[in-house]
Computed example of a mutant assay.
Amino acid sequence: MLSLFSTHLFSSTNKKTIFALKVHRWKRNYIKKVYDEYNWFFIPRFLSINVLERIIKNIDCAVLVWGYGENPAISNLCKKLKVPLWRMEDGFVRGRGLGAHRNLPQSLVIDKSGTLYFDCRSRSSLDVLIQTTEPTRDLLKLAQSHINTIQRSGVSKYNLVPLSNKKTPSRLQTSTKRKILVIGQVEDDASIKLSGCGFDNGMLLNLAHKTHPNADIFFKVHPDILAGKRKIKTPMNDIRKIAHLIDSSVTLKDCFELCDEVFTITSLSGFEALLHGKPVTVAGQPFYSGYGLTNDINPITRYTNRKVTILDIFVCAYMLYPDYFDSNSCKRSTLQKTLLSLCTNQDRCDRL
């Protein structure tokens, strides 16, 4: 095993080598193509820490983990050898469809701080960008143009519901009460574990009901749960006692337009709601909380004296933090081109 790695490494000395863990097989060739400036090795699960140490200790390399959940010995080894530990995740305009259905992402994030944007325990590269970047006037103008496109089109992260099939529940259309949209999440997701402040879907629904006892409450089930790829902790029968369920046929854009306020734990949909001009209550500590833009149930301290706006966060989170790609050619792209492809393609979809 060691000799196989070494032979290939020495033939690619002009590129930094990335030893990647927890990356699904179906993503690997794509990642190698879109990030071809690196020399990629995908570490098998059975490889021992001792063997990995022998491989990487004298090489210009980084260890990259998809998300979290790696053996703690990995981070300890990186500290010992002073090897960078990077993390990878999908970007905020992922493209069409779920990763669970093996749809290739049109945007990816490599966070070289070792902390991803959904981990509030320490500062990610996105946190640093938000707290230190002062966007130019031209960049803010471009950001506003992108937001206008998102508002008009309903482009979101996953873009799942074909426009020809979209429906709106009659209750959501006809209710004369205040309408509260509660964003469902996968309760064993890393963002809930790391930044959810102990909340689950049931607790969030109870919070919304307690805050607005006379309102109509609507619960948007997470697409991974609807697709049968993940499980929900809160029983659906308990959810139905408090809220009207919104199924996969309704776009988030429709929900934002018809609802008065949005509740979420850590979901990106909370920030998307801000982009659509809706007030947002967050129970957890997502990257966009703590700046005075959201009603924070569990406030977080942000280390900046700057007044941060929605435009500032959009510039950093959507334009500076992720990398964009054409999933067909595997060439680098931009947010503008990605939005255009999602808006003009005949099969364009809208996120659940």
Rank of each mutant, 00 (worst) to 15 (best):
H8F: 13
L9Y: 05
L9D: 04
K16W: 04
I18D: 05
A20G: 15
A20Q: 01
H24S: 15
N39G: 00
F41A: 08
F42S: 06
I43A: 05
R45P: 00
R45N: 15
S48H: 08
E53R: 10
I55Q: 04
I55A: 03
I55C: 06
D60R: 10
V63C: 12
L64F: 11
V65H: 10
Y68P: 13
G69E: 05
G69S: 02
E70W: 01
S75H: 09
C78T: 10
V83L: 07
L85D: 09
W86H: 09
R87K: 08
D90P: 02
D90G: 02
F92Y: 12
F92T: 06
A100Y: 00
R102T: 12
L104G: 02
L104T: 06
V109Q: 01
K112N: 02
S113D: 08
T115H: 06
Y117K: 02
D119K: 07
C120K: 09
R121V: 04
S125P: 04
D127S: 02
V128G: 00
Q131P: 05
E134C: 13
Q144Y: 04
N148F: 12
T149R: 14
S153C: 13
S156C: 11
Y158A: 03
Y158N: 05
P162T: 12
S164V: 13
T168F: 08
S170K: 14
S170P: 08
R171W: 00
L172Y: 02
Q173F: 00
T176R: 14
K177R: 15
R178L: 11
E187F: 03
A190Q: 04
L194G: 05
S195F: 06
G202R: 00
L204T: 10
K220W: 08
P223C: 06
P223F: 08
D224H: 12
L226M: 14
K229A: 13
K229P: 01
D238E: 15
D238K: 06
H244I: 07
L245T: 11
V250S: 15
V250W: 00
V250I: 13
D254L: 02
D254T: 15
C255R: 03
E257H: 11
V262I: 15
S267G: 03
F271Y: 09
K278F: 12
P279G: 07
V282C: 15
G284A: 01
G284F: 02
Q285C: 13
Q285A: 07
Q285I: 07
L293C: 12
N298K: 02
P299Q: 11
T301G: 05
Y303D: 14
T304W: 11
N305G: 14
N305R: 09
V308A: 05
V308G: 07
V308S: 08
L311N: 12
D312M: 04
I313W: 00
V315L: 03
M319E: 06
Y321K: 03
P322L: 11
D323P: 03
Y324L: 06
F325W: 05
D326R: 01
N328E: 11
S329F: 07
C330V: 01
K331V: 09
R332N: 15
S333H: 11
Q336I: 09
K337Q: 12
K337C: 10
L342E: 05
L342T: 02
D347M: 09
R348N: 12
R348V: 05
L352A: 10
